[in-house]
């Protein structure tokens, strides 16, 4: 039951209160370092300076997948162990994942405009990212539609796990579909990545991961507080009767 495990969310809250400032500060430092490295990195001889967009695009794509993985692990926690913290973790991750999927799409299309001459190409990676974004929106819609948080968590957990099974299949089908329909090959990075570009990219990926950890922890804290407010309001309403 959700209510017998409340000691854990309390301990989690005090942990989050201590961890968030440190994690946030660390994120800012690594992000600043990564941005600095990205700005001073040499340009790609084919793509010129638009390759700077890669330092945002690739880490966003990575985070959008990481967030679904976090949601899937949390879904197992919800379904198998019935842990309320898992519900909270899953709910908090969804909007963050959706935001980074959106950022990936926006940066991808802004990168595509100078490279392909159009904002949107039904490129395999962009298209599967779009489907991932739609799946995020579906999960968020489900969270918002089901009123009881515990039931919403279980419904969302099943959807998340089905999505986790289906996402690789979607990715495979979209790549297959893409090669079927395209004569010339489009790709965001046609050339191999040189170490001078790879190292800033890796630093940015680490910075984005830290950013996700901070945002996720803070969003989980909000969600725990929101549940406390909800329970206390229910309590108040019933004692008033």
């Amino acid at each position: 039951m959700a209510l017998t495990d409340l000691a854990n969310p309390s301990r989690f809250l005090s942990f989050a209160n201590r961890a968030i400032p440190w994690l946030g500060g660390f994120t800012v430092i690594v992000l600043a370092f990564g941005l600095n490295q990205a700005m001073s990195a040499p340009n790609d001889y084919q793509q010129g300076d638009t390759v700077k967009i890669m330092y945002l695009h690739v880490p966003s794509a990575w985070l959008s997948m990481l967030a679904w993985a976090v949601m899937s692990v949390a879904a197992l926690g919800t379904l198998v162990w019935r842990h309320p913290l898992a519900d909270v973790a899953a709910k908090a991750a969804a909007p963050i994942g959706a935001a980074f999927a959106l950022l990936c799409l926006i940066t991808g299309s802004l990168w595509g405009r100078p490279e392909w001459g159009t904002y949107w190409v039904w490129d395999a990676r962009l298209t599967s990212e779009l489907v991932l974004f739609l799946l995020y929106l579906g999960v968020i819609a489900l969270w918002r539609t089901v009123e009881d948080p515990a039931r919403a968590a279980r419904a969302a957990a099943i959807l998340t796990l089905v999505g986790a099974i289906d996402l690789p299949i979607i990715k495979f089908s979209v790549v297959w579909w893409n090669t079927l329909h395209q004569g010339s090959s489009f790709g965001l990075t046609g050339s191999t990545i040189y170490p001078t570009m790879l190292i800033p990219l890796l630093i940015m990926a680490v910075a984005f991961t830290l950013l996700f950890a901070t945002l996720h922890l803070a969003a989980m804290r909000n969600e725990i507080l929101r549940r406390r407010v909800r329970t206390q309001r229910l309590m108040q309403a019933s004692t008033a009767n």
């Binding site: 700077k52 967009i53 945002l56 959106l102 802004l110 945002l215 969003a219 929101r226 406390r228």
Partner: peptide
């Protein structure tokens, strides 16, 4: 396009941070 990308990142990440911070205050 480069500026646009970084501006989009700033808006989206900034929006997330602001939303989470405001939500925190509201719940508290």
């Amino acid at each position: 396009f480069i500026v646009g990308s970084y501006a989009a990142a700033l808006i989206i990440v900034g929006g997330l941070v602001a939303w989470i911070a405001l939500d925190f205050r509201a719940q508290r």
